[in-house]
Design a protein around this nucleic acid. Structure first.
Length: 202
DNA sequence: GGAGCGATGTCCT
DNA sequence: GGACATCGCTCCG
């Protein structure tokens, strides 16, 4: 289990730290496991691209709370996106989970995505909307849950997977209109589940 | 393979 | 009323 202390740092630090860690989603019938391979940092009230930029509202309340909690929101009316709150309580930084590598429970993820059996694993969880569908993460059920709680049906764990510095890639944010030039998107270089783009070596 | 576009909930002005 | 941290389908090459 990743302890709460792992989330207390600034979003860019936590975004790098989360690469290579596991997301564990427990359902009634299966345990779905996937490794985090792409993240994006949002810097809170100082970041024009962040939801928290507009201030503390009912919607962004989770972001201002204790670190290590899930912030799930709906985008374009259809898709859910999963973030993890970081920084000390009262500060609104967060990290968006952009892509995962499926490790266990691939049949369930494939079914959740509505894909045919045998679909490419890289297609299951590459993209923030896709990975929420694959892991059955909804705003109604998961917004505000504690990822460090052993009883949570969504947890973050460290299985000892080592990420070398030379495997880290960094680039500007995508899908964002404001402050997109900031180098706040992190990924494992060359990983098949990471969308292609102009990543630089860190 | 890549560009264009529609679907559609929730929040804020 | 408009914007939005997306995706998958279409059409065109």
């Amino acid at each position: 289990m990743l302890p709460r202390s792992a989330y207390i740092d600034s979003p860019d630090v936590v975004a790098r730290r989360l690469l290579g860690k596991l997301l564990v989603r427990s359902t009634e019938s299966a345990t779905l496991i996937a490794r985090i391979v792409e993240t994006e940092a949002y810097l809170g009230t100082d970041d024009p691209a962040a939801h928290a930029f507009a201030g503390r509202t009912a919607r962004t309340e989770v972001l201002f709370g204790a670190p290590g909690h899930a912030y799930v929101y709906t985008i374009y009316g259809i898709y859910a996106c999963l973030n993890v709150s970081c920084e000390p309580e009262g500060h609104a930084g967060c990290v968006l989970i952009r892509a995962l590598e499926p490790i266990a429970g691939l049949p369930e993820m494939t079914a959740n995505r509505g894909l045919a059996a045998g679909a490419r694993p890289a297609a299951l969880t590459a993209g923030p909307g896709r990975l929420c569908r694959a892991l059955d993460i909804t705003r109604a059920e998961f917004n505000g849950i504690d990822l460090t709680d052993a009883s949570s049906t969504l947890q973050a764990r460290d299985d000892g997977f080592a990420v070398r510095d030379r495997d880290l890639a960094i680039t500007g944010r995508i899908g964002v209109n404001k402050a997109s030039e900031r180098p706040l998107r992190f990924a494992l270089m060359g990983h098949p589940c990471v969308s292609k783009g102009k990543f630089h070596k860190l």
